[in-house]
Amino acid sequence: MDAILIINGPNLDMLGIRQPEVYGYDTLADVEALCQRTAEEENVSIDFRQSDSEAEIMGWIKKGRATTSGLILNPAGFTSTSIAILDALLIYDRPIIEVHISPLFRRDEFRHLSYPSKAASAKIEGFGIRGYEFALRKLAEWARG
């Protein structure tokens, strides 16, 4: 069974509370449950994580090279700021799908830049938490070859 690493960046632990007009009322637990159901349907396992720490996220990405066949990353607040996460992603030599719950192109101008996109195989944004499901299904398909 292939493992997919799912990393959520800063403040995503506050989904459902923080700006529901932007992110909706689903919680991070709802995202994890959706990913778990999808993983079972796709016959893959997931390693689901969240951190407000850039260093911790970088460590997970680097360690994931040895144990996972794909990565879903919602870099959240690090999207427009972290060259360090981009550098870690460039080391991760497996498919990467960047996911955003809200459409970045409709948000503040400074949010339009995404450093992780430079390393991503694909990017999904604006579909709410369903973006995670779409990404997971695609990574499972790629893992099957």
Results as ranks from 00 to 15, higher is better:
2 D>C: 07
2 D>N: 10
3 A>G: 07
4 I>F: 00
6 I>F: 02
6 I>Y: 00
8 N>Y: 00
9 G>L: 11
10 P>S: 05
10 P>W: 00
10 P>D: 00
11 N>G: 01
11 N>E: 00
12 L>E: 05
13 D>Y: 02
14 M>G: 10
15 L>H: 03
16 G>F: 06
16 G>R: 01
17 I>D: 03
19 Q>K: 15
19 Q>S: 14
20 P>N: 01
22 V>E: 04
23 Y>I: 05
25 Y>R: 11
27 T>K: 01
28 L>S: 02
29 A>H: 05
29 A>G: 09
32 E>Y: 12
34 L>K: 10
35 C>V: 00
36 Q>H: 06
36 Q>L: 15
36 Q>S: 09
37 R>Y: 05
38 T>W: 00
40 E>P: 00
40 E>R: 15
41 E>H: 10
41 E>R: 13
43 N>E: 14
43 N>S: 15
43 N>P: 02
46 I>G: 12
46 I>E: 12
49 R>S: 11
50 Q>C: 05
50 Q>E: 07
51 S>T: 08
52 D>A: 14
52 D>T: 13
53 S>A: 12
55 A>Q: 07
57 I>H: 01
59 G>Y: 02
59 G>A: 11
60 W>L: 03
61 I>T: 01
64 G>V: 10
68 T>D: 08
69 S>F: 03
72 I>E: 10
73 L>W: 02
74 N>F: 13
76 A>D: 06
77 G>P: 06
77 G>V: 09
79 T>P: 06
80 S>D: 11
81 T>M: 10
81 T>W: 05
83 I>H: 00
85 I>N: 03
86 L>S: 05
86 L>I: 11
87 D>E: 14
88 A>W: 03
88 A>N: 04
90 L>C: 07
90 L>R: 10
91 I>Y: 14
91 I>S: 12
92 Y>G: 06
92 Y>P: 05
92 Y>M: 04
93 D>G: 07
94 R>A: 15
94 R>C: 14
94 R>G: 13
95 P>A: 09
95 P>E: 02
95 P>K: 05
96 I>P: 05
96 I>W: 02
97 I>E: 01
98 E>D: 12
100 H>V: 05
102 S>Y: 10
104 L>E: 04
105 F>P: 02
106 R>H: 14
106 R>A: 15
108 D>C: 04
110 F>A: 07
111 R>Y: 03
112 H>N: 05
112 H>S: 06
113 L>H: 03
113 L>E: 03
115 Y>G: 06
115 Y>H: 08
115 Y>S: 09
116 P>M: 13
118 K>L: 15
120 A>C: 12
121 S>Y: 02
121 S>M: 09
122 A>G: 14
124 I>C: 01
126 G>Q: 09
126 G>M: 08
127 F>I: 01
127 F>E: 09
129 I>M: 04
129 I>Q: 02
129 I>A: 06
129 I>P: 00
130 R>W: 14
130 R>H: 12
131 G>V: 03
131 G>C: 07
132 Y>R: 04
134 F>L: 15
134 F>W: 01
135 A>T: 01
135 A>K: 00
136 L>F: 10
136 L>K: 09
137 R>L: 12
137 R>Y: 09
137 R>A: 12
138 K>P: 08
138 K>H: 06
139 L>V: 14
139 L>E: 08
140 A>H: 13
145 G>I: 11
